[in-house]
Nucleic acid binder design. Structure first.
Lengths: 224, 224
DNA sequence: CGGACGGTTCGGCGCGCACCGAACCATACC
DNA sequence: GGTATGGTTCGGTGCGCGCCGAACCGTCCG
C-alpha cells in the first residue's frame, strides 16, 4: 500500500483517533487507562496500540506490569494536529459535564507539549506585540525574543537543534494560531514547573494559578 | 465519528490516496483519466471522487460531459503532503519506465503549485544564500526578498492575504525542504509562463529549457 | 505460596466498504 | 435522427478489520 494510505489508515479509525487525541496532552498513558477512556476491551486496546506503535506514531515504555505509551515525538503530534484541524467545523459538545470540560479546555490546555486555548493564543499575541516574535511573513524569533527566552525562561537553543524554534499551531477552539516548537515547549515546561498553571483532572485542561496570573501579567502583560 | 478519523479515512484507501497524489500536480483531471490512472472501473472512480469532494479535499468543475476535479486548495495539498511525508522511508521504484520517470521527477517536478525536486531545493538554497529568505528560525522573506519578488517575478502580496508568503515543504526525494506558499506558487507560475520549464508527459515531471537554465543561473546563480 | 491485576494472544463474529458490471443518463458528433 | 463516449446509479459480492471473550502469561502483594 502507498505510504500515504498507510499512514492515514492509522488515524482512520474512531478508536485509534481517540487514543491519539488523548495522548496529545503529551503525557504517557497506560494501556488500561486508554481502554477505559475509549470504552473498549483491554484486548482490543492492546492490539490497536501495537498498530500505532508499528506505524511509528506512538512510542512505548514498559515498566513492571504496565505498558506506558505516548506520542513518538513532535512530528507525530504535528501530524495529528494537521489532520484534525482540516475539518471545516466540529459539533458542539453535549451534556453538562462535557461542556464544563470543554469550557475549561477552551480557557487553557496543553497541546502536546505547549500551551493552547485562549491562554495560548493570548501569550502568542503578546509575544508578537512585544516584538519577541516576528509574524509578518512566516514566524521568527527576534534577537530580543532570544534574549527573553534565555533570561526569563532560562532556555538556550542547543547547537544543531533540528526542531524549529517556533512553529504556528492552529488552535481548534480559537481558530487562530498559537506557538509550538521549542519556544512553545519551553514556555509550557516553565509554566508547569513554576506552578503558573496546574492540570485539572486527568485531561488536557489547565487552570491558571494566582502566581501564574501575576507572572503572565508581569512578563507579557497578559490578563488571564 | 471524530473529525480526525473522518478526515483520515478519506486518505486511508489506496485508490483515493493515488488519486490525491496524482492531483498533487496542481492540475484538474477528468474522472476518466483518474480511473485509468488508478486502474479501477469508471463507476468506482465516480464514487470515490464524490467522497473526496464531500470531504472537502477536492473541488469539481463540470464542463460539458466532463467532470474535472482538482485539489480544493493549498490546505488540502498541505494536508496530503504532511501525511505522505510522515512515513520514514519508501520503497524504490521497480522497472525501467518507472525508474526513468522517478529520475525525471527527482530532477524537477511540480508539487501542487510550486517547484520541487533537486531544482526546487537548489532554488530554495540559493534564495537563502542570497539573503532573499531568512531561514535561521522559522522562514521569512527579507525586505530584499520582497523587492526581488516584485522586480523579477512581478509578484506583490495582496493586502490581507491569508496564505503564508513562504512555507517549508519537505521534499520527498531530497529529504530537505523547498519553498511552498505564495512565493513558491509565484515562482512556479513564472517559470511555466516564461517557458523556463515545461511539463514532461502528463505527470508532475518537469524539464528545464535552455532559456530556463540561463534564467536560473542569472537570477539566482543556480546551475540546473 | 495463592490471589489479584495488567496486559497479551487467539478464534470467531459481523459490519463496513471498495469493487465490479449492467443499466441508464447526458453530451457531442455524424 | 442514430451512434459513440463520458459519467452516474444501483444491486450484489467478497475481503478486511474492529471488536469481543476466553485462555494465558507476568508482575506485584499479602
Amino acid at each position: 500500500m502507498s505510504p500515504l494510505a498507510e499512514t492515514a489508515s492509522l488515524l482512520a479509525d474512531r478508536t485509534r483517533a481517540a487514543i491519539c487525541q488523548a495522548l496529545l496532552d503529551g503525557r504517557a498513558w497506560t494501556a488500561g487507562e486508554l481502554a477505559r477512556h475509549t470504552g473498549i476491551a483491554p484486548s482490543t486496546a492492546s492490539e490497536q496500540l501495537s498498530r500505532l506503535i508499528d506505524g511509528g506514531l506512538l512510542a512505548e515504555e514498559r515498566q513492571g506490569r504496565h505498558r506506558y505509551v505516548r506520542l513518538a515525538g513532535p512530528q507525530a503530534a504535528a501530524l495529528i494536529e494537521a489532520v484534525a484541524s482540516f475539518a471545516p467545523d466540529t459539533a458542539r459538545p453535549r451534556g453538562l459535564r462535557a461542556s464544563a470540560r470543554a469550557g475549561a479546555e477552551a480557557r487553557a490546555r496543553t497541546c502536546y507539549d505547549h500551551l493552547a486555548g485562549r491562554l495560548g493564543v493570548a501569550l502568542a499575541d503578546a509575544m508578537v506585540g512585544r516584538g519577541l516574535v516576528a509574524a509578518d511573513a512566516g514566524l521568527a524569533v527576534t534577537p530580543a525574543g532570544r534574549d527573553w527566552l534565555a533570561e526569563e525562561l532560562g532556555y538556550r537553543r542547543p547547537a544543531g537543534a533540528r526542531r524549529p524554534l517556533v512553529r504556528a499551531c492552529l488552535d481548534w477552539t480559537e481558530r487562530r494560531p498559537h506557538f509550538a516548537g521549542a519556544l512553545g515547549a519551553a514556555l509550557c515546561a516553565a509554566a508547569l514547573e513554576r506552578r503558573w498553571v496546574r492540570r485539572l483532572g486527568s485531561g488536557r485542561a489547565l487552570a491558571v494559578t494566582p502566581e501564574g496570573a501575576g507572572a503572565f501579567r508581569e512578563l507579557l502583560g497578559v490578563e488571564s
